[in-house]
């Protein structure tokens, strides 16, 4: 057992090992994004649909906590590895060029740390806003977000939340940076996992953009619909 643990640590200690850990954790997070979006879009089917979905999730009980802790681990691993890589990258060139040039790197690829950290700040805010805030009832002081049967009125929570301009504003800003993160990240992931070939490279680039647009456009449609008065 000890030698297995040491071997895994040795893999993680290597540059490519860390990159593969980043890619695999990202794969899990991408899966979460798809599931989360699918759930959120139920809001367009009306209050009953999304409230029933929320109730179902909460009824999972222990399983929900397994998923939450799993996600937390994925995010933690993704951040720890990327920040370690970024620190090593900075150290690898102690003397910067006086004149530096960029030959072909995309802007998104150069903003990965910034877009990632913005997503992190957003996720914390988002959890305080919709998950913890609600649980601790400060949002719910007068029971305004309870249905008659005592369950959460997620629909009203979302609509009221997004009516506040700075909530929607920050949400949309974070989605813009998430789109940037994914437009580079998704195609990068295939390269890191060694799946890219000359023939598939353009396909994966397109997939990165496509994924970014569909996911972020999907999430953005909700605050936009609320602000436009389509959801009330």
């Amino acid at each position: 057992m000890k030698s297995l643990i040491l071997a895994v640590l040795r893999f993680y200690a290597s540059s490519i090992g860390k990159k593969i850990v980043v890619a695999l954790s990202a794969l899990g997070l991408l899966g979460f994004l798809v599931g989360h979006l699918a759930g959120n879009l139920l809001i367009f089917k009306g209050p009953d649909a999304i409230n029933a979905y929320a109730a179902q999730l909460h009824d999972l009980g222990g399983l929900l906590w397994v998923a939450r802790i799993g996600l937390l681990v994925l995010v933690g691993v993704h951040i720890a590895a990327t920040l370690q890589l970024a620190a090593a990258n900075r150290a690898a060139r102690p003397q910067e060029y006086v004149v530096s040039a960029t030959l072909r790197a995309t802007r998104s690829s150069r903003l990965m740390v910034l877009s990632g950290l913005t997503i992190l700040v957003f996720v914390i805010y988002h959890l305080l806003h919709f998950t913890v805030g609600n649980l601790h009832g400060f949002y719910d002081a007068d029971g305004a977000y309870r249905l008659e049967d005592g369950r959460q009125n997620v629909y009203k929570m979302m609509v009221d939340g997004f009516r506040v301009w700075f909530n929607s504003g920050f949400y949309l800003l974070a989605l813009g940076l998430l789109a940037s993160h994914l437009s580079h990240g998704v195609s990068s992931l295939f390269q890191t996992l060694g799946l890219t070939t000359p023939r598939t490279r353009p396909l994966f680039r397109l997939a990165g953009w496509g994924f970014a647009v569909v996911i972020c456009g999907g999430f953005a449609s909700i605050p936009v619909a609320v602000l436009a008065g389509l959801l009330k």
Partner: peptide, 19 residues
Amino acid sequence: VRAMDEAGFGNCTNQYECV
């Protein structure tokens, strides 16, 4: 790869400036 890491080179971020 281990010799590369030991020498103090950075890590690839798939930006292809090298290419």
